[in-house]
Design a protein around this nucleic acid. Structure first.
Lengths: 212, 212
DNA sequence: TGTACATCAGTGAACGCGCGTTCACTGATGTAC
DNA sequence: TGTACATCAGTGAACGCGCGTTCACTGATGTAC
C-alpha cells in the first residue's frame, strides 16, 4: 500500500519512523495541507530527499499516518475485548477504550479524527466489530428492533462524540470516567438494554477507566 | 466580523454573493486549502482583485461561508420549532430538519460539516436550543438523570451522524425517513423518554420528512 | 435637467515566495570469493 | 579476515510553478449645486 510497506534495513526503518513521528506531532496541531514537507523532515532530522524515498507523495504520507493510528485504536479495542463474550460489555468496552485513547494519546486521537475528514466515514474494521456485537445483543433478545438497521450508526455517533469531547475539554481522568458512564447509560438504554443492566455495564467501564 | 458585513451598494452585494456562491460549490467538493482563489473568482466571473475588496484573506472567506451556512441551518431549526412547545417534539424536529437540510441542500450540508472541522466543536446557538429542550424534558420528569450533564453531547452526536449518513449514502427521501425514525426512537429512548411516546414522536417526524 | 466632483467598487497585471518534487551524487550496508 | 563490487538509503541543491496578496488605474454610482 505504501512506497515501502516493510522497510528491509533497520536504517530505513528508523528514517521512516522518524518522519512518521514528526508527522504525528504536526498533524496534532494543524491539517495536512498546512504542513510543509520541510517541517516534517526538519523535525525528523533527515534530508528532504528522504521523504520521497519512503512516501510516494504528500497524500501518501498522510494516508500512512492515518492508517497507522486507526490500526492502533483498532488493536487496542480488540485487545481489550478479547475474552469478553457479553456483547453489551464489548460495546461498552469499545467506547471506554476510545476515551482512554483520547486521554493517554491525545495527539494520536486528534490525528485519527482528522484522518476521518469527510466521507471516509468511519473505519471499516471497527465498524464490523460493532455490527457483530449489536447483532449479538439483538439475537439475545436484549435490544430494541430499531437497532438492527440503525444501531451501528447510532453507536458510532456516540463513540465519536465521546472521543471529541475528551479531546476538546481535556478532562481529568475522574471527570472523563463520569462522563463516559453517563454516555454509556444513555447509549445502552437507547439500544434497548434494560436500565439496570446498562447502569451496571456503564459503572464497570467507568471503574476500569479510573483504575488505569 | 467580515470585511464588508453589510455591503452598501447593490453592485457590491452582487459581487460578494457571486463569490460566496462559487465558494459554496467548490467547498462541497474539496477542503478550502485545495481551492485556489483563482478558481473562486473564475467561477464567480469577477476579477481576482475583487476578492480582497470583500474578504480580508482566504481564511476570512472560509469563515464567512461557514458562518452563513450555520446560520441558515439554525434559522431553519428555529422556524420549524416555532410554536412547538413539547420539548420532545422540538428535539425530534431539530434532527428532522438537519436530515431535511442534507437531503435538499446537500452541498450546503457538506460545507457545514467541513466548517466544523475539529475543535470548533459544534455551533453554539444550536447547542443552546438543545440544552433548553433537554432541561425541559428533565423538568417534566420524562428523562433519565444522566441526560442532565451528558444529554446535549449525546443528542449532538446523533444529529451529526444522521447528517453525515445522508450526505454519504444519498438515500431516497423514503429511506432517509425510515432511518430518521429509527434513529429518533433509539435516541429518545436513550434520553429516557417512554418507548411509546418516543415511537410516536419519531413517527411524526418521519411523516413530516416524507411529506415535503 | 445638467455639470463637476467625490467616493466606491472592479480590474488584471505584476510580484514574489513557499513548497512539492526531482536528481545526480555520496556514503553506508551487505555479499561473494 | 580482507578486498572488490553491488545495492540500497541518505543528502541537499536546484527547479519551477502555483497561488496568495498588492497596487495603480479605470469605470460606475452617488451627491451637491
Amino acid at each position: 500500500m505504501q512506497a515501502a510497506p516493510v522497510p528491509a534495513s533497520p536504517r530505513a526503518a528508523r528514517t521512516r519512523a522518524a518522519m512518521l513521528a514528526a508527522g504525528f506531532d504536526l498533524l496534532a496541531e494543524r491539517p495536512i495541507d498546512a504542513i510543509a514537507i520541510d517541517e516534517v523532515v526538519a523535525r525528523a532530522g533527515v534530508a528532504k530527499g528522504s521523504f520521497f524515498n519512503h512516501f510516494i507523495d504528500k497524500p501518501g504520507f498522510a494516508n500512512a499516518i492515518g492508517a497507522a493510528v486507526r490500526a492502533e485504536l483498532e488493536e487496542r479495542v480488540t485487545a481489550a475485548n478479547s475474552g469478553v463474550a457479553d456483547p453489551v460489555a464489548r460495546l461498552a468496552g469499545g467506547m471506554r477504550v476510545a476515551v482512554e485513547f483520547a486521554l493517554t494519546d491525545r495527539k494520536r486521537a486528534i490525528v485519527m479524527l482528522r484522518g476521518l475528514e469527510l466521507s471516509t466515514g468511519i473505519d471499516h474494521e471497527l465498524n464490523r466489530g460493532i455490527r457483530a456485537d449489536i447483532e449479538a445483543v439483538l439475537a439475545a433478545g436484549l435490544g430494541r428492533k430499531e437497532a438492527a438497521r440503525s444501531g451501528v450508526r447510532y453507536w458510532l455517533g456516540l463513540c465519536q462524540i465521546a472521543l471529541l469531547n475528551v479531546i476538546e475539554r481535556r478532562p481529568e481522568r475522574a471527570a472523563a470516567a463520569e462522563r463516559l458512564e453517563e454516555m454509556l447509560v444513555l447509549g445502552l438504554c437507547g439500544l434497548g438494554i434494560a436500565e439496570d443492566a446498562a447502569r451496571a455495564a456503564a459503572r464497570n467501564q467507568a471503574a476500569l477507566l479510573s483504575a488505569s
